[in-house]
Design a protein around this nucleic acid. Structure first.
Length: 683
DNA sequence: GGCCCTGGTAAGGGTAATTCATATTT
DNA sequence: AAAATATGAATTACCCTTACCAGGGC
């Protein structure tokens, strides 16, 4: 609890994974810092009192300079035993106020008195010393680990990508640069000084990881797709050896793509079924190189390149796959995978009580399980199981292991209240009972990215429970509406240019609020393979009472739009707006509609429906389960909330190249709440 | 010259989705 | 018997980390 002032030499940044900024009705900014997150990375001295200071700095100048406005800050521990704290800041200068109300990038820094190392500006919601360090060596990592730092590894989550894209947008905007590729591929090192460091804000990844990610993302010679030019590649390989950059340049592919493809090619490689002789050789080689005995379980520490070298007739990938998915299991006396195993797996995962699927220790789970071929195999098994459950991608992880799938038998998934009924509405939509009569989950697939589900008069939408940001609960006005087979429920899908922003509440399920929403609009895009004629819902065999769900899209084009060409990150941090009235309107199909939907306990509403004659653009913006915080008070209209889009920035980026973008939005849209409002109003 | 910082390359361990071949069901 | 469908194996496009190196600045 102190006022912020300049003091750049005595601070370091406390790393927290999710600090969230909201603004209350009085204009105070409130910084929320969950305890567990802070603890995770706290220094060894856990008795340290939470003397936090906040520092604001502008985006243009990451260093904290003397012009930093004075902000009064109140930091209150939430409870005595609780290291989490709530900070209330009040801007006291014009500058500061502007910065805040306009939502330009205001960096917030939590400064801790005792630590002296460095200063790292804090990104949108969090800061990570890790993300400010370019380290690739083991020593560097050990050093950071010893200081108590942790960071993310592995696949990037959607949330992370969103943060990254958002950061890049801001960087571009601040410098008036249109295209990030200018910076990445054209500028000199000096010109793009601090680019990577800046865009790494808020990401708990090593700078180098950010760098790699960005390069791949913006390299249009990446993601080119299937290699048709194998012969040419072979020639070039002979000519240039391992000079991947040269080969890549000749093929219009990235160096790493070419390198990866060449790994699959081997002159002596067989394809198809393995012969017994090959299997025998593989087993021998693996055991030899790992100093293990036949029958031992070997799932790690194998140099597959070396193995492939010795096997001779197979590539390293083939060897690895064969070993981990079959041979090792066979050799060590594995048993067949049964339905019981499947149930077991689900139960065991449910018991693990891990919040993030990535945290599952598959090695541990696979241990001593004779029908599990390898930890890697088990992991993919889990994926196939999830895929069988219609909405696999959309059920948030913890939810997928507990209700509604209470039990699983060989054929059906049984809910607490009966047989699970899954109705395929569109390939990416599923209607699923929640167990509460009349309440269904209408779920979208994030890969398909179909953004919006709309309702018939007999069903309404409400915000999803906090646990699952990609779900929209559909309420029938009465259970019969959905359960009576003779009563067709029409679900209309009108997708383009619709932005839904749902804001989960702490207790939406306890106090169900509903919003009715119907938006008609065009579909222009043509990504979707299915013809949009009324699709009748498929059902699972054996189900009896089946609501008949029909989709009658009102499209001009014969396709439903996937998300396509919009740079949705522009709207990433959009504003939450509220109206008092529920609306239900039908627009002419020739118009595109845009809707901001907000919901909270008091007044879930549809905010706006604005006709647009813009190209198809569709976004479903939903709060991230991690980033979202719920202020205890009503959130004011200018609260900036961390949001998640369902786009894949990589695909998106490439689509952008194919589509004309930018102009569709008229003007650059900032993450600034006012801008978003203006945008809505001007259309 | 030695060291640090930033940026870059190659190797190789991985994942996830698709394709292919075969078995099973209708 | 043929067609449709399901399933598991194989393949492949792409992802990520690690190790190592180079050039510039101090």
């Amino acid at each position: 609890m102190s006022t912020v002032e300049e003091d750049s030499d005595t601070v370091t940044v406390e790393t927290v994974n999710s600090v969230t900024l909201t603004r209350d009705t009085d204009g105070n900014l409130i910084l929320h810092c969950p305890q567990n997150e802070a603890d995770e990375v706290d220094s060894e001295d856990s008795t340290e009192p939470p003397h936090k200071r906040l520092c604001l700095s502008s985006e243009d100048d990451q260093s904290i300079d003397d012009s930093t406005p004075c902000i009064s800050v109140v930091a209150l521990p939430l409870s005595e035993n609780d290291q989490s704290f709530e900070v209330t800041m009040t801007a006291t200068t014009e500058v500061a106020d502007d910065e805040i109300t306009e939502g330009t990038v205001t960096q917030i820094q939590i400064l801790q008195n005792e630590q002296l190392d460095d200063i790292s500006p804090l990104g949108n919601e969090e800061v990570s010393a890790v993300s400010q360090a370019w380290f690739t060596t083991k020593e560097d990592k050990d050093s950071l680990t010893n200081k108590g730092h942790k960071w993310k590894q592995g696949m990037w989550s959607k949330e992370e990508i969103d943060i990254l894209m958002n950061n890049i947008e801001r960087y571009l905007k601040a410098r008036g640069i249109k295209d990030a590729t200018e910076i990445i591929f054209e500028m000199s090192k000096d010109e793009r000084k601090d680019f990577y460091r800046t865009i790494a804000w808020g990401l708990n990844r090593p700078l180098f990881a950010v760098y790699r990610r960005v390069l791949r993302m913006y390299d249009d010679r990446n993601h080119v797709g299937k290699y048709e030019e194998i012969e040419k590649l072979k020639e070039l390989r002979i000519k240039h050896g391992n000079d991947w950059a040269t080969i890549g340049a000749a093929l219009g592919r990235s160096a790493s793509s070419v390198k990866d493809r060449c790994r699959l090619m081997k002159d002596t490689c067989n394809t198809g079924k393995w012969t017994e002789e090959e299997e025998k050789r593989l087993a021998e080689v693996v055991h030899e190189l790992t100093s293990t005995e036949p029958g031992d379980i070997v799932t790690q520490g194998v140099s597959w390149a070396a193995v492939a070298e010795r096997v001779g007739t197979r590539s390293e990938k083939q060897c690895r796959s064969k070993w981990l998915n079959y041979l090792n299991w066979k050799q060590s006396g594995g048993t067949e995978w049964t339905k019981e195993d499947e149930i077991n797996l689900i139960l065991r995962i449910a018991e693990l009580d891990v919040a993030d699927e990535n945290d599952i220790n598959w090695d541990l789970l696979a241990e001593g399980w004779s029908s599990v071929r390898s930890p890697q195999w088990l992991r993919s098994k889990w994926w196939t199981i999830k895929r069988q459950i219609a909405n696999h991608k959309d059920v948030s992880f913890p939810a997928s292991t507990d209700s509604p799938a209470a039990t699983v038998d060989s054929e059906t998934i049984t809910l607490n209240s009966g047989t699970l009924q899954t109705f395929e509405i569109l390939p990416s939509f599923h209607l699923q009972p929640t167990g509460t009569p009349g309440t269904y989950l209408l779920q979208t697939s994030s890969s398909q990215g179909l953004p919006l589900t709309l309702t018939s008069p007999t069903v309404t939408l409400t915000a999803a429970a906090p646990a699952s940001p990609e779900q929209i609960i559909v309420h029938a006005l009465s259970p019969e509406h959905l359960l009576n087979t003779s009563d067709n429920v029409t679900v209309q899908c009108h997708t383009p240019r619709v932005i839904i922003q749902t804001v989960a509440t702490e207790d939406i399920t306890a106090s169900i609020s509903q919003a009715e929403l119907t938006v008609d609009s065009d579909i222009h895009s043509s990504d979707f393979p299915e013809p949009p004629d009324a699709l009748e819902a498929d059902t699972f065999p054996g189900e009896i009472h089946q609501p008949k769900v029909t989709v009658e899209p009102s499209f001009n084009d014969a396709h439903v739009s996937k998300f396509s060409d919009q740079n949705s990150t522009e709207l990433m941090n959009s504003v939450m707006v509220r109206t008092e009235d529920l609306k239900q309107e039908e627009e002419s199909p020739s118009h595109l509609a845009r809707a901001y939907v907000t919901e909270d306990l008091e007044s879930p509403t549809i905010e706006e429906q604005v006709d647009q004659t813009i190209d198809d653009e569709t976004i479903l913006i939903v709060p991230s389960p991690h980033g979202f915080i719920q202020a205890s008070d009503v959130i004011d209209t200018e609260s900036v909330l961390p949001l998640t889009t369902l786009t894949d920035p990589i695909l998106q980026h490439h689509r952008e190249e194919l589509n004309i973008i930018g102009s569709s939005l008229g003007s650059p849209v900032s993450e600034d709440s006012k801008d978003v409002e203006d945008l809505v109003n001007c259309h």
